[in-house]
Design a protein around this nucleic acid. Structure first.
Lengths: 233, 233
DNA sequence: CGAAGCATTGAAGTGCGTCAACAATCGTGG
DNA sequence: CCACGATTGTTGACGCACTTCAATGCTTCG
């Protein structure tokens, strides 16, 4: 569904893609799904739930580098890297489809177009990293959180997980702070400021964007970096 | 040279790679080499000089997302993305080799192994982005700059551009600040603190690491994220 | 040689961090 | 179904790392 939002996938390609996944796996919340540094020979497609990628410093501080939702190939880059420089963490219960690298290698050799599509997906992840770097380096706390909420709405919309201007947001304030380079306390105060301005509602793990133009304005959000438009490969 | 530092390249592969580049181009310092959003159908291998990738906010603030040195394929990800979400900027005089995407496509279809190698290179760029996100989100100004100096030493070493513990560093303090999410003023003060601690020397666009263990300690630098080890593809 | 960019310094301000306490909610076992 | 501990969210007081503004000297280069 996520691929078809961007390009045509033939029946033959779809069969080949489905054949890559050897099994599905379930993990509970707050698990280390893949640990940094360990050799990996499979990649994980997230079917449901939320994952995060995060790097730790020795002092205990953690920086998330991306959030993943259903449809995301969470560690496809491990196909070429063979180990990860960060942990993959489950934020909720998750269902994962497992793609052995050997099968991915055969798929991409047989279907160079699919290789380009998967390569593209990892490059979009890199584009998300760059946008986060811009947030972390130059945006205020208010704009960082606003921007993240805009990004997630756009990405969840692709896979049909938005309900108008709202979506499930099962991320704790501490985790949100770990994404935005803030402390939990300040993330809390910033959320309250977003509420006070009438931009969002956030309660019971459900986020509603009350003023989309206002939120996007605060964030200077422009979805170009998500490369959502349809295209040839 | 950069590829051969990591893996074997056969004579046949080398010929095919060389044939991809159609021409070389020169640009002066402080030029926009590729502008965000514009369609691109070539990628640029940096032969000499320094490039940066940067994103701007409306207020005039700029965040660099990566620095590039000789041997780097500065916008290889454009091969799959077809436009960039950021500008590519020249910091110095640069020589660039131009790789048309059509030729890259033929190369990667004919040599799936080279496709994986190039895919790998873009994924290493993403790993650098993640490390920068960790710096921007969680490291102090001192650690951010120290970390960048460690990263550049490791990367320049691969292509033979270090002289022991020093290397040419033609980056202004303003540009350094744009990389590290600081103001120029604070980058200046932080550099002085690094000098005061006897960790570095920086003068005449030449950086010398006086205390490598000390600098790496301040930065919590671990080169694993650069994926420099030799490997099969 | 002059202008423009770059590096440096000082003084003052602020956005976010830290510490600490408490409230609300969740999850789990009895 | 309730009890209770643990996690999450909220609030206040205070501190500090970094920013802002402004001025001055230093390079660089046409």
């Amino acid at each position: 569904m996520k691929l078809r939002a961007r390009t045509e996938i033939s029946a033959q390609e779809e069969r080949a893609i489905r054949a890559v996944f050897s099994e599905t796996r379930r993990v509970g919340p707050d698990q280390v799904v893949v640990r940094a540094g360990e050799p990996v020979n499979v990649s994980l497609l997230l079917l449901s739930g939320w994952l995060a990628r995060g790097k730790d410093l020795s002092g205990g501080d953690r920086q998330m580098t991306e959030l993943h939702v259903a449809g995301d190939f969470a560690d496809l880059h491990a196909f070429t890297l063979k180990r990860l420089d960060h942990d993959v963490l489950s934020l909720t219960d998750c269902r994962l489809a497992v793609a052995p690298h050997q099968a991915l290698r055969e798929l991409t050799e047989k279907f160079p177009r699919l290789a380009r599509i998967y390569w593209f997906l990892t490059n979009v992840d890199a584009a998300v990293h760059r946008e986060w770097a811009l947030s972390l380096g130059r945006r205020s706390a208010l704009a960082r959180i606003a921007h993240l909420f805009c990004e997630l709405h756009a990405r969840l919309d692709v896979v049909g997980l938005t309900y108008g201007d709202s979506y499930d947001f099962p991320v704790t304030q501490r985790e949100l702070a770990e994404c935005t380079g803030l402390t939990g306390v300040h993330a809390n105060r910033t959320l309250q400021e977003l509420r006070r301005r009438g931009l969002i509602e956030l309660a019971n793990r459900r986020l509603t964007i009350l003023d989309k133009a206002g939120l996007q304005g605060v964030a200077e959000f422009d979805p170009d970096y998500l490369y959502l438009e349809r295209r040839d490969f």
